[in-house]
Amino acid sequence: MTDLTMKDVMASYSEDALDLASQMGISLDYSEHSIKILDEILEEYHRGLPRGIKELFVRSPTEEDIIQMSKIWGGYLGEVIRLNIGGEWGISENFMESICLTINDTEIYPPAKVNKRIINGKEDGIFIYYQVIKEGNYV
């Protein structure tokens, strides 16, 4: 059995994202433009979260469901960043051992960002996040 690296794991999640997008009739290509498409996909997930009285009648995704989707779509987001800007996958030493992408000694957290996007909606937009990273403002 081979030891999988975090890069292998996240590349696999990213491929899962490509498969899910394909099932939705969407083609993703690891381009910067595809981040806008990813933002739209994540908005659909956000809109699908039951709120208010609807929560009583509609099965909500479990926390585990949302975490899994965050890893899948976060894998895709991170791979777009890695391929277009650079970086290396790993486990954070600074943030509760989270999955991170390190760019020039700065950790960013694509799966955590996707999780926020799913939960909070447009206020945590992915395209703006990507632009900030591209400009070198990793905060």
Rank of each mutant, 00 (worst) to 15 (best):
E123F: 03
Q23E: 15
R117V: 10
E88L: 10
E15A: 13
M10N: 14
V139D: 13
L38M: 03
T106H: 11
E97G: 13
E88P: 00
E63F: 01
V80S: 12
F95E: 15
E88M: 05
P61N: 12
L49C: 00
I85V: 01
K122R: 09
N94E: 06
I41R: 09
G48C: 03
K7F: 11
E15S: 15
I66M: 00
K71V: 05
S22Q: 15
N115A: 11
G25L: 03
N115F: 15
I126R: 15
Y76V: 01
M69I: 08
Y129H: 09
E63W: 04
N94G: 05
S22E: 15
E79V: 05
H46N: 13
I67C: 08
D105Y: 06
S92K: 06
G48Q: 02
L20F: 13
K54S: 09
E135G: 04
I37P: 02
S98C: 07
S92W: 03
L56C: 09
Q23W: 11
D124L: 03
N115M: 08
T102S: 11
G90S: 11
Y45H: 00
R82N: 03
E44S: 02
V80I: 14
P111V: 00
G125P: 05
D19G: 11
I91N: 02
G48P: 04
V80P: 13
S34E: 12
P111R: 00
E88A: 04
E123V: 10
G25S: 09
I108E: 12
W89C: 03
G75F: 06
G48T: 02
M24W: 14
E64P: 10
I53W: 08
R59P: 08
H46K: 06
I91V: 14
N84Y: 00
S70L: 00
Q131L: 13
E43V: 07
G87K: 13
Q23I: 13
R59K: 12
E107V: 01
I81W: 00
N94P: 00
I67M: 09
I126C: 13
M96Q: 15
D16L: 15
D19Y: 14
L56W: 08
K113V: 10
N137G: 07
V114A: 01
K113E: 11
G52S: 03
D29L: 08
I85H: 01
F127E: 06
N84H: 07
G90T: 07
R51G: 10
M24T: 14
G74C: 01
E44W: 01
M10F: 15
L4I: 14
R82P: 00
E64H: 11
T2S: 12
S27W: 14
L20Y: 11
L83H: 10
M1L: 13
H33Q: 13
E40Y: 03
I85G: 03
P61T: 10
V58L: 12
Q131D: 08
Y76F: 05
T102P: 07
Y129P: 00
I108F: 10
D3K: 14
G136F: 09
H46G: 04
N94F: 04
I119M: 08
T5A: 06
L83R: 15
F95D: 13
Y76S: 04
I99G: 04
I81Y: 01
F127W: 06
Y129S: 03
E79M: 05
T5Y: 05
K71Q: 08
K36G: 03
E32Q: 12
G75E: 04
D39R: 11
Q68F: 13
V139L: 08
